[in-house]
Design a protein around this nucleic acid. Structure first.
Length: 727
DNA sequence: AGCACGCCGACT
DNA sequence: GTCGGCGTGCTC
């Protein structure tokens, strides 16, 4: 008897599956499709996933020279039927090799030849009854562990609360003071009641509940501070009470300890949190627990959408417009879009929440595919902030700030309130120039100016990470007069410290908050109130609720207004609204000042006069008029190489072949915005189709062929379907 | 992607 | 005379 033949997807960027003879050591699982197997590949071995089985070779397949798979890792598919089907859809939609898609969905620990049974999530609880004996001295690590375990905790939480407790924990377990229990089987705690829902929130919750058991996308369109999370929580409680699983996606920076705590306390059941700080084993344990239906609430960032959910009842995507939902390398999927596809496959409602819906989502609302639920007012006492545009033309700026803006910052801070100063550039100054000859410092490997980091005494390239010492004199004319041009967060911090010596000025950017814990500690301090000026980048724009913050300043709106990307306006409008949403979330009214040299810019005028909704309506009409996404389907073919001719050869051939596909137009090759990065030249094609299916079909049959071209081997190339940035 | 093989420059 | 550069080709 010959062993059955297995078609296996391997985690390699190859547009093909590989055939093997099934292992003979162990019996084949009843349904091997979706099971992991170890196979010899090249001179080593890999873990692949079975995508098809040919029991008796009836297909006339040629078995000569086939190698035999080494071992089964699973007795049943880890993916589950729905996720398996959805991943096939996803590989065809985002046009990526199936083996890599299947591997991306698995948690890292399961991409190796580890049996799933060897992975278990642990939790800890105080032993009951507690053995006699002297209690550990107060303040010791042991005492702190016992104190933290006043309620049972998953291992990862305990380690967050009592850092460095691993050793002590083992001792406590050995001494019988602490019990190890399986996570997700922890006892339920009474859920803490939230504030009563206002009528708009109630109506939204009722609509979501009414859709229970069938597919329906909702857009929860709520101004910042309107209490979207309360709507999620009420809908989630309803779903879990009915015995269903719920998946909640949040943007990368939204998964703070405060946010996690809120879900834990308000739901009263163990939550599987999937974040980047987790150990591989813990992550895999949470993923597997979800796949068995044990973890009832899964909370995580982008990749959490790739979790199996056999008992799903609801999917929530918070801040659906957030760019971090799109993966920017490898398998370039959009977790938000995949959430809708999965909800359809699972037959459950999906809630896309945001104060600033993406134009893609709005187009779906207009087309009647998504149902809009509005939360028009801020919950509680807070009112909309007053937004003013500050014209920088013909004003004498002092250190990058208009006098009126300086005065306002000082006034609010001296009243004991908090001020947010937003500037999307870290470092001291974006340029270092010679006053005498006009030279300025450029990166040797990228087409860009280097940023001055004065505190470190360095010039840094924000694109490739290169750093070099600050020159004392101009390398071109030897003049000693080198001037810092423009303002980054580091410089604004210095300027504002000088302006307000008596008020703490805190900088929040990647340079000051390298660790997540530093960031969280800072926000806990700010939540307590007290005057402060916060200077920072994007990191400051969203999520945090600071009731004593009454003034938000946008230092430079012009960079965003000048964006060459067709999505630039949308991004800037979302950013301005999100930054504005930080101001006036408590009892005191909020004020927002936007500095610009283009106060008459239509985007700003519309945004101020009609709010985000008005802006979005206009922007959507423009997109429609120009047949831009979401009214056309776009993809990009990107390529980079040391030399231009290699890129030209590949993209030229790519353009010529793609143009032959029906319904497809191609622009390019176009040089990338940053035409040289880290020593590589970069360019791309824009592939357009009026019909989404034409695009997928054209790219799907093109990519495997292009992969085999000799031109393709001389470049690094990638496909990006529904790209967020097209420059 | 890895990982071989393979044919030309600066080192013990 | 060798170590090693990365071009080219293959992986059931």
């Amino acid at each position: 008897m010959t062993p059955p033949l297995l078609r296996i997807a391997l985690p390699v960027p190859l547009w093909q599956a590989f055939d093997y003879l099934a292992p003979t050591e162990a019996p084949m699982p009843a349904d091997p499709v979706g099971c992991r197997v170890v196979v010899p590949f090249g001179r080593g071995s890999r873990v692949g996933v079975v995508v098809a089985v040919d029991e008796d070779g009836a297909a006339g397949s040629d078995r000569d020279g086939l190698r035999q798979a080494e071992a089964w890792l699973d007795r049943a598919s880890l993916y589950g039927e729905e996720l398996w089907r959805t991943l096939h859809w996803a590989q065809a939609y985002w046009v990526h090799p199936l083996g890599e898609v299947m591997a991306t969905a698995l948690p890292v620990a399961l991409r190796d030849a580890r049996p799933a049974e060897s992975i278990a999530a642990r939790a800890y609880a105080r032993a009951a009854p507690s053995p006699d004996g002297p209690a550990p001295r107060a303040g010791t690590l042991k005492a702190r562990v016992l104190e933290a375990l006043s309620t049972p905790l998953p291992e990862s939480d305990l380690k967050d609360r009592v850092p460095g407790c691993a050793r002590v924990l083992r001792d406590l377990v050995d001494a019988g003071l602490v019990d190890e229990v399986p996570a997700f089987a922890l006892p339920e705690r009474p859920a803490i009641e939230g504030p009563p829902l206002n009528p708009a929130q109630r109506e939204a919750v009722d609509a979501i509940i009414a859709a229970g058991g069938r597919f329906q996308p909702f857009v929860l369109d709520g101004v910042t501070g309107s209490g979207k999370t309360e709507v999620y929580l009420a809908a989630i409680r309803h779903a879990i009470a009915a015995g269903h699983q719920v998946l909640v996606l949040v943007p990368e920076i939204g998964l703070t300890p405060q946010a996690i705590r809120r879900y834990r306390e308000r739901l009263g059941i163990p939550i599987a949190v999937l974040h980047s700080g987790l150990a591989d084993g813990e992550r895999a344990a949470a993923w597997l627990a979800a796949g068995r239906g044990e973890a009832r609430v899964v909370l995580g960032t982008r990749s959490a959408i790739l979790t199996p959910l056999p008992r799903a009842g609801l999917i929530v995507v918070d801040e659906e417009h957030d760019a971090s939902y799109k993966q920017q390398d490898g398998f370039r999927y959009s977790a938000r879009d995949l959430a809708v596809v999965r909800a359809r496959a699972l037959g459950v409602p999906v809630v896309l929440g945001t104060a600033t819906p993406s134009l893609e989502t709005l187009a779906n609302v207009e087309a009647g595919r998504y149902q809009r639920l509005r939360l028009p007012t801020r919950a509680g006492p807070a009112r909309r902030p007053v937004i003013e545009v500050v014209d920088l033309n013909r004003r004498r700026l002092v250190e990058g700030l208009a006098p009126a803006v300086r005065d306002a910052i000082a006034e609010h801070a001296r009243r004991g309130e908090q001020v947010l100063v937003f500037r999307n550039r870290r470092g001291f100054a974006p340029r270092l120039a010679c006053h005498d000859c006009g030279w300025h410092a450029e990166c040797t490997r990228c087409d860009t100016a280097m940023t001055l980091h004065r505190g470190e005494g360095l010039l840094r390239c924000h694109h490739c990470g290169a750093a070099r010492r600050l020159p004392r004199e101009c390398p071109s004319c030897r003049s000693a007069e080198l001037v810092a041009e423009g303002y980054g967060t580091e410089r604004l911090e210095e300027v504002l410290t000088a302006l307000l010596p008596e008020v703490p000025v805190l900088r929040v950017d990647r340079d000051t908050t390298r660790t997540k814990s530093a960031f969280d500690a800072l926000f806990e301090r700010l939540e307590a109130g007290g005057p402060a000026v916060l200077v920072g980048t994007q990191m400051l724009a969203k999520g945090h609720d600071l009731p004593n913050l009454t003034l938000a300043v946008v230092v430079d709106a012009d960079a965003g207004l000048a964006s060459p990307d067709f999505r630039g306006a949308e991004r800037l409008a979302q950013l301005l609204v999100q930054v504005s949403g930080r101001a006036g979330r408590g009892v005191k009214p909020g004020r927002v000042l936007i500095q610009t040299r283009q106060p008459e810019h239509p985007l700003l005028k519309t945004l101020l006069a009609e709010g985000y909704g008005g802006f979005a309506r206009e922007a959507l009409a423009i997109r429609q008029g120009h047949a831009l996404p979401p009214f056309a389907a776009w993809a990009m073919v990107r390529a980079e190489a040391r030399e231009d001719p290699a890129i030209e050869a590949f993209l030229g051939r790519a353009r010529d072949t793609l143009r032959e596909a029906p319904g497809i137009t191609v622009q390019g090759p176009l040089p990338a915005q940053l035409a040289r990065r880290a020593g590589y030249r970069r360019a791309h094609l824009i592939v357009e189709a009026g019909d989404r299916r034409a695009l997928n079909a054209a790219l799907g049959s093109w990519a495997p062929v292009a992969h085999a071209w000799p031109e393709a081997r001389r470049v690094r190339w990638s496909l990006d379907v529904d790209p967020l940035e097209v420059v």
